[in-house]
Design a protein around this nucleic acid. Structure first.
Lengths: 221, 221
DNA sequence: ACGCCATTGACCACACTGGTCATTTCATGC
DNA sequence: GCATGAAATGACCAGTGTGGTCAATGGCGT
């Protein structure tokens, strides 16, 4: 006689492959609608009714594509991670050793990601605060490493010898970071007033250089 | 014969005065619990059940103190505005013309406000994003002017002649602002690990000066 | 004209909502 | 120790919104 004990349930968050058969535009519509709702309300209070309304599909379809709310959420996490890995981290040019130029290029990439998936960054950032026990552990397991890898790769091979003597480089980078986020927020609020993302990008870059110059003046020799 | 038309309903958001008879500590407990819930979920989705649980009072009491959810919300807005006016704006020393010193003092005041009402700033800031038609107009009417007055008074009588030639003062102030917010967030996350707010305040001030010096080095002649 | 499967939305049991109010608890004066 | 009024309670209510289901429908390829 054997006693079998299920110590750990196997994760069976298999996405119903029907979803992947959809047209890319429709997939994006659903993804963006769902992310938007989860960002606004968190896992528990996000409403699947709101998601299907925004995505212009029926309730039945949503639960055809995904087994349940949790599977949808986990899929979105995976999707967000994939986007950031593929379209941000992998495109970082490690030969660019100047911190400001590196940051500038990253900002440019973020802008492009934003135009396709407007809330991925917000989503992953807010997911870390998620408290619902149903998804909390999975998030920690999946999202934390992405941020760790991010802060590592972003500053890899940067030439710190350009910095003034005596300056606290860590604090300088924090200031740069906060300024980027602040400027990024401001930019995103303006982005909707433009039709052409390229045109916006140009102006955006030009304005960022002005902020950049002010900080460079302080940080560099 | 006269025809009387009610063009505009008189605002009758009179707070049931029972609330003001309570012991100050109990009042603060209720205020903080309610603010916390409204910050987390917005007006519509905030739960009065959660508020009474957190405030350790009964449902009946809450609706004895306040006629309804909306009155509670409006009271909290008024309260928040009062706190900021009384404990922040009125304490700004207009004889201090150095921008960095002025900012430093304001940070100090904010720290004290935070220790008594941990979420007032978040509350008023997030209230502006509120979309519920039941309170949207009232907020715009009450909160917007506070922020306008704030940005005006904070920079009143500042000596801009200390700034380097050619620097874009507006952008410099934006950077300073973003850095303050970033540092403030970081500080608040650490504040709970300290018992004594005075001790924390000292360390906080000392660390802020390091950031401050970096920016001063860039902004000033 | 048929078969097949993606799509639909009415429907379900249930959780939770803002608000009420009969009842209990408490503080006070005697 | 008792009477009295005020303050506090929480079971209760009708209504709304929830995640998820599934019989019915629609539309496309042949």
């Amino acid at each position: 006689m054997t006693i079998s004990v299920k110590l750990q349930r196997k994760e069976t968050t298999t996405i119903n492959s029907n979803f992947h058969k959809l047209k890319p535009e429709k997939k994006e519509l659903i993804i963006n609608a769902a992310i938007k709702e989860f960002v606004r309300n968190g896992f528990d209070k996000a409403s699947t009714n709101e998601i299907v309304k925004e995505a212009k599909i029926s309730k039945g379809s949503l639960f055809n594509y995904f087994n349940n709310k949790k599977d949808l959420y986990v899929f979105l996490i995976d999707h967000g991670i994939h986007v950031i890995e593929k379209h941000l981290y992998e495109k970082i040019d490690l030969d660019e050793t100047d911190l400001f130029k590196r940051i500038e290029k990253i900002g440019w990439q973020k802008l492009h990601i934003h135009s396709k998936y407007p809330h991925v960054f917000d989503f992953l950032a807010s997911s870390i605060q998620e408290e619902s026990p149903e998804v909390k552990d999975i998030i920690k397991q999946k999202v934390d490493p992405v941020y760790e890898r991010g802060t590592e790769i972003i500053f890899k091979h940067i030439d710190y010898s350009k910095f003034r003597e005596g300056i606290d480089i860590e604090k300088a980078i924090e200031i740069l970071n906060w300024t980027m986020f602040g400027f990024g927020d401001k930019a995103i609020k303006q982005i909707n007033t433009f039709e052409d993302i390229g045109e916006f990008g140009d102006q955006y870059l030009k304005e960022w250089e002005l902020y950049s110059e002010i900080l460079k003046n302080s940080f560099y020799k």
